[in-house]
Design a protein around this nucleic acid. Structure first.
Length: 259
DNA sequence: ATGGTGGGGATCCCA
């Protein structure tokens, strides 16, 4: 089973690039971020016509996450627990019913800039809520994954120019520590475990020719529970997507699980 | 030090 995460930066702007990629790569499950659309405006037909079940947790203009799946989806849950006052659409999870059940969580972690400030406080508070949900997933001792735009550069080798990110919310020590705190609970970074070393990125800014200079960062991650990590057979990044017509500033990151 | 680009939707916010 191939599962991909993709921050598309607006469903309307990606109404061609995303279906084209689906037709080529044929992922079984796709976790989308930044759909930037209310649920009722999301073009479900584009995906249902291709055999995908569609579950969205949208929002007008900003944020918004969704799950596409060739397998049935059960027990869909919207919103990251822990703050009833949080109205930003950044989390959706569901159980994919294939040969065996797989719990998948799609997340769009807050950017947090400028730091320090209220946006950075929100990011760190959101990561603490994420840690709490992650502990519950581990306690279930079942195949599960949390994938999406984490807006965290885990290590210096995950940036072409780490110095440029020194004071950025994506690379501040507190952000990286919060990310490690979650990973150290027992998750596997599905890309990193199979592709060590520098030079692997998932985001290139639209500005200043970042793509042409390969000035990227790796901020889109797939974290696997131990039971999911046991099933991992491959992982990758569809880097070439960034060079296509009207690209997102992110590219898909995918895993293959023996499911 | 600044501004560089892009999406969404409204003449500015977010990344």
């Amino acid at each position: 089973m191939k599962i991909a995460t993709f921050n598309i930066n607006g469903i309307k702007a990606r109404a061609h690039a995303l279906p084209d990629w689906l037709d080529e790569m044929r992922p079984d499950v796709v976790l989308l971020q930044e759909i930037k659309s209310p649920d009722q405006a999301f073009p479900r037909d584009l995906f249902e016509d291709r055999g995908y079940n569609v579950e969205t947790h949208g929002q007008k203009s900003f944020n918004g996450v969704a799950i596409l799946s060739r397998f049935p989806l059960e027990d869909v849950s919207r919103g990251l627990p822990g703050d009833d006052g949080d109205d930003q659409a950044r989390w959706i999870e569901a159980t994919v019913v294939g040969k065996a059940a797989l719990r998948v969580c799609a997340l769009y972690l807050p950017n947090g800039n400028p730091a320090p400030g209220p946006k950075y406080d929100y990011k760190l508070a959101w990561m603490e809520r994420l840690r709490a949900r992650a502990e519950e997933l581990l306690a279930a001792e079942e195949p599960a994954l949390m994938a999406g735009d984490y807006n965290v550069i885990p290590q210096a080798e995950d940036a072409a120019r780490p110095d440029a990110w020194e004071n950025d919310a994506l690379f501040l020590p507190e952000s990286r520590a919060a990310f490690r705190r979650i990973g150290n609970l027992g998750f596997t970074d599905a890309f990193r475990v199979r592709h060590p070393g520098p030079g692997h990125y998932s985001f290139w800014d639209y500005q200043a020719g970042a793509w042409n200079r390969n000035d990227g960062i790796r901020i889109d991650h797939v974290l696997l529970t131990p039971q999911a990590a046991d099933l991992l057979t491959d992982s990758g990044i569809d880097t070439e997507m960034r060079g296509r017509e009207k690209p997102s500033d992110h590219v898909p990151v995918w895993v293959e699980l023996d499911l």
